[in-house]
């Protein structure tokens, strides 16, 4: 136990830097992934068959490919060379978009049909209805699920060590590879991940309760 604490104290700078990179990567992932998910969700309900099929195909590919494989594909498999962080952001964003599109589609479909009819009776165009009526309410319904998914994506950033992104997991491994205190460093990494995810999911719970109060 003292050994673990000792390792944390000795390497705290490197570990905290790693955690910051993990958080940045999670931010990048959500920044690209959530709007992507919304676009896929809307395209998935499109009346044009081609748009719908493309959206469904992208969703299936995104959901079917493991994040580990997706990371390798974006990093090494495309002709453009991007930095590790950006590649990881894009790879995880693709996964995020595919998953959140399902969550958002559920949210959009939960908006009562009557409101859409009312909007069209008021002479609003389909796009205006979507933008002003359906999306705001649908996203609100989907918010708790989106937030818990974001927490999962934060954990998925731990896989970016495979493409040399200096995030928490890779820092922990790197330190352990030089002093061979593997077990201690993985425990430290576990605690640091848990600290972030547990507080994030506590926050999610509060938001969920708050939103459901008005339903």
């Amino acid at each position: 136990m003292t050994g673990i604490w000792q390792d944390f104290v000795t390497h705290q700078g490197q570990l905290i830097d790693g955690l910051i990179v993990s958080l940045q990567l999670a931010g990048l992932t959500l920044l690209f992934g959530l709007p992507g998910g919304l676009i896929l969700a809307i395209a998935g309900t499109s009346r044009t068959r081609l748009t719908r099929y493309v959206a469904i195909a992208l969703t299936e590919i995104g959901r079917g490919t493991p994040a580990l494989v997706m990371l390798q594909l974006v990093y090494n498999g495309i002709p453009v060379t991007l930095s590790g962080l950006l590649s990881a952001g894009i790879a995880l964003a693709l996964t995020t978009a595919a998953y959140t599109s399902e969550i958002m589609r559920g949210g959009l479909q939960a908006v009562p049909e009557g409101e859409i009819e009312a909007a069209s009776a008021l002479g609003m165009s389909r796009w205006d209805t979507l933008r002003d009526v359906v999306i705001p309410q649908g996203l609100r319904i989907a918010l708790p699920s989106l937030m818990s998914f974001s927490v999962i994506m934060f954990q998925a950033t731990s896989l970016a060590f495979t493409i040399a992104v200096p995030e928490l997991m890779s820092q922990a491994k790197s330190i352990a590879n030089s002093n061979f205190h593997y077990f201690n460093l993985f425990i430290i990494a576990a605690v640091m991940y848990a600290a972030i995810t547990i507080s994030a999911s506590a926050f999610t719970d509060r938001v969920e309760r708050r939103l459901s109060r008005h339903v």
Binding site: N76, G84, F161, T162, I163, A164, P166, S170, K173
Partner: peptide
Amino acid sequence: KVYPTPTAMYN
């Protein structure tokens, strides 16, 4: 940049 494997570095 610190790579997890030599293969990743040479790629």
